[in-house]
Amino acid sequence: MDVFTKKRLAVASIVYWLLLFYIVAALIWWFIALEKQNHQTAAYKLSELKMDDPAFQTKYQAIVEARHLKDIQYLGEGGIFLIVILTASIFVYQAVRRQIRLQNQQENFMMAITHELKTPIAIAKLNLETLLKYSLPEEKKQKMLQATLQETNRLNTLASNILVSSQLEGGRYRITKEELELSDLVKTAINDFRNRFPDRQFHSEIEPEIDMDGDALLLQILVNNLIENAIKYSPKEGIITCKLTQKNRTILFQVLDEGAGIPDDEKKRVFEKFYRIGNETTRTTKGTGLGLYLCKKIVEDHHGHIRVTDNTPRGSNFMVSFTAKHAHEQ
């Protein structure tokens, strides 16, 4: 959260608490005033009673009971109003903080998406212009074409993430679940990344013939996003490990990296929409904050679970679990 947002949140918090204090103080003042009026009224009625009146005791008892009932009424009404005010104030305070935080994340998203769009377009344009203008050796030409292809894939992934995320949230994406071999899907994705990033080290442990019911496109996006996330946050010499195993009816897919890892207090928040660790103006890692959010949404739509733990000795371990239709035969 930047300095401007923190100041804005601080001002909103101060104004909010001052208004809440005023409302509670007014409620207490109202209660004291009514209690005082009730006791004064009862005292006046008692002073009007005559000792030689045969019904003195009955009238006295009625006035005292009426005063007592009024005390209970005012106390009950005041207590209910106080509970309602405090409950509503908590909800309003949390909603305002969420709104300010969401607005800040959306601003970060716009900054990130602008950078994510401009950078690959600029690189691809420069590479293509160079290839058209100069006659380059075949090796260098292939290297530039490979770089252009990588940037194009980045744009394609970004567009898919935004489109699918919007459709899933709006209920416009119709999930088509069919029986598919998850082992082949993961192997294909890893081989694709090996071709796209020949300078990175990939290690895979994929059990064969692991089947599940799911949407092939969404599961492909899930696998690709988790591997791309590992590439983003790992050093170039780090090993990215992908594991797919099944024990009884539980399918477990893991992507492990050797990056800096994720602090414990950030582990749940990384799956929030637009959320990214750090500040958008100083962050150097590419991304929009949609990838992991989309992963969580896809996993939940397949009735699975996703979480992140620490890798050993360093890095992160993203773990996705699904329930298979049948037990896996080893």
Rank of each mutant, 00 (worst) to 15 (best):
I83Y: 09
F56Y: 15
N311V: 04
L158N: 03
E272I: 00
N161W: 00
R67S: 15
G170H: 12
L128I: 03
Y173L: 14
L9D: 05
A33T: 05
A327S: 06
E77A: 12
H302D: 03
L69C: 07
K267P: 01
E35Q: 12
T119P: 04
E272G: 01
S89Y: 06
I251C: 03
A10F: 08
Q330F: 11
N311S: 11
I113G: 02
F109R: 00
H203P: 03
T312K: 15
T241C: 05
N104Y: 11
F56A: 09
A26Y: 13
I210H: 00
E35F: 05
R174P: 00
Q57H: 12
D71H: 10
D215N: 09
Y44I: 07
T114W: 15
K247G: 07
R249A: 06
I206W: 00
I221E: 01
V255Q: 01
K6I: 10
T284L: 13
A327L: 06
Y44L: 09
L49N: 13
P208C: 03
H305E: 14
V308C: 14
L136E: 05
T176P: 02
L132Y: 07
G78M: 04
Q94M: 10
E272H: 07
F202I: 11
T323K: 13
T284I: 14
R276V: 09
L128Q: 05
P54E: 15
I190Y: 01
L82S: 10
V3I: 10
Q103V: 11
T188S: 14
I83H: 02
K232L: 09
T41H: 13
I240E: 03
Q103I: 11
K133L: 13
S316M: 10
R196M: 15
L256K: 09
Q330T: 09
I210K: 02
H203C: 12
C242N: 08
K70L: 13
A112E: 12
G171S: 06
F109T: 02
Q106P: 03
T323Y: 05
T282P: 00
V24E: 15
Y275H: 06
D257N: 11
I83M: 15
L252P: 00
F31S: 07
F81K: 12
H305R: 09
T119W: 15
L131K: 03
K232C: 08
F253E: 03
N229D: 04
F56G: 10
Q201E: 14
F31P: 01
I100K: 03
Q142D: 06
R174A: 13
I298F: 06
Q103K: 09
